[in-house]
């Protein structure tokens, strides 16, 4: 009952803030016009239609980006058996950023940041590369904290590499990369969203098929094996799903922090369940809600706040709480 209740509450909040994000903002449009355009009526003012579709696109991107990052965080936490794991903490987002930096600062970009196939591919490859390295390292490093520190080291390394790339980059590339690094859900057209959304949905549903294996992994790799879980198959699923989800979203939206680590933890606290058939959809909806809410706050700050700052303000206290909780448990 509890997962269902939480799911309903989150869906209502998500629906409310998604609508608010489309209906309100500068310029103020008549609500009747916004609703009319959303259900397919022609507006008397052509620019109104463009504004509503612009708001709709960024809301949809925020929704699916949040869902994807949170889901990626959830499976990383399960696989590495670490509640502090997430795309940002483990260096996966940095790997994606490195991929994007190589293309943008290295002059391999084919066009604008959003919509450039090279950038998206580089982002995904970078993210998957870091996950693969972490999985390889996890064979030798059993300690969870050491693995997190390793993730941080990867982040430092990639940041240093990006800084080196800056030295040889043109002024335009540098500006483009810096703008991308601020993080935003703005500017991705529907033609790109129709590619992003099915990928995110397909990977999330694919994960649902692995929910029993993930349940087994919660109790450890040996236990999972004794339950007949193919840990090797699961490992590849984790690389594939978390890498594509985190890489894809980072390439389009820039590095969005804390969603992947904080939301899955909040959901676990909320439902007190280890059943991933519940946790996966709830983490998705929770992440979607946080990012839509963050975008709503960004727009209401007159776009003065970067998305990263808002997600950090919400996510950092949760992470700190988890650290205290873990410490209490170990004491």
């Amino acid at each position: 009952m509890r997962p269902l209740l939480l799911g309903i509450v989150l869906l209502i909040c998500l629906g409310f803030f998604s609508m608010a994000n489309i209906a309100f903002g500068e310029p103020e449009l008549p609500l009747s016009e916004v609703l009319g355009i959303l259900i397919g009526y022609e507006s008397s003012e052509p620019m109104y239609s463009l504004i509503v579709s612009h708001r709709l696109n960024r809301t949809l991107l925020a929704l699916f980006a949040g869902g994807a990052l949170s889901t990626a965080g959830l499976i990383l936490q399960v696989y590495f058996r670490n509640p502090l794991a997430g795309p940002g903490v483990l260096g996966v987002t940095s790997g994606a950023s490195l991929g994007v930096a190589v293309v943008v600062l290295g002059g391999l970009s084919l066009g604008t940041v959003q919509g450039d196939v090279m950038i998206v591919l580089a982002g995904i490859i970078g993210a998957m590369g870091i996950i693969a390295l972490l999985l390889l390292a996890s064979k030798y490093i059993r300690n969870n904290i050491s693995l997190l520190v390793l993730g941080l080291m990867f982040s430092y390394f990639t940041s240093a590499f990006v800084n080196t790339l800056f030295l040889g980059a043109s002024e335009m590339s540098t500006r483009k990369y810096v703008m991308w690094g601020l993080g935003s859900f703005e500017g991705v057209p529907m033609s790109q969203l129709v590619i992003i959304i099915p990928i995110v949905l397909a990977l999330t549903f694919m994960l649902l098929a692995f929910s029993k294996s993930l349940n087994g992994m919660v109790l450890g790799e040996s236990y999972a094996r004794s339950m007949g879980v193919s840990t090797r198959g699961l490992k590849w699923a984790v690389i594939l799903v978390a890498g594509i989800l985190a890489g894809l979203i980072t390439a389009y939206c820039g590095p969005i922090g804390f969603v992947g680590v904080a939301v899955p933890q909040l959901i676990r606290l909320g439902v007190k369940s280890t059943q991933h058939v519940h946790l996966i959809p709830l983490a998705f909806i929770g992440g979607a809600f946080l990012c839509v809410l963050a975008d709503f706050i960004v727009r209401y700050s007159g776009n003065q706040l970067p998305v990263n700052a808002v997600t950090a303000l919400a996510g950092a206290p949760i992470v700190i709480y988890i650290i205290f909780r873990l410490n209490k448990r170990s004491v």
Binding site: G25, E26, P27, E45, P46, M47, L50, I51, H54, R55, E186, R299, G302, N303, Q304
Partner: peptide, 13 residues
């Protein structure tokens, strides 16, 4: 002057 992109679209029309 900081103006939202959508507002400038309207003004640009």
């Amino acid at each position: 002057i900081l103006v939202s992109q959508e507002q400038v679209w309207l003004d640009g029309s």
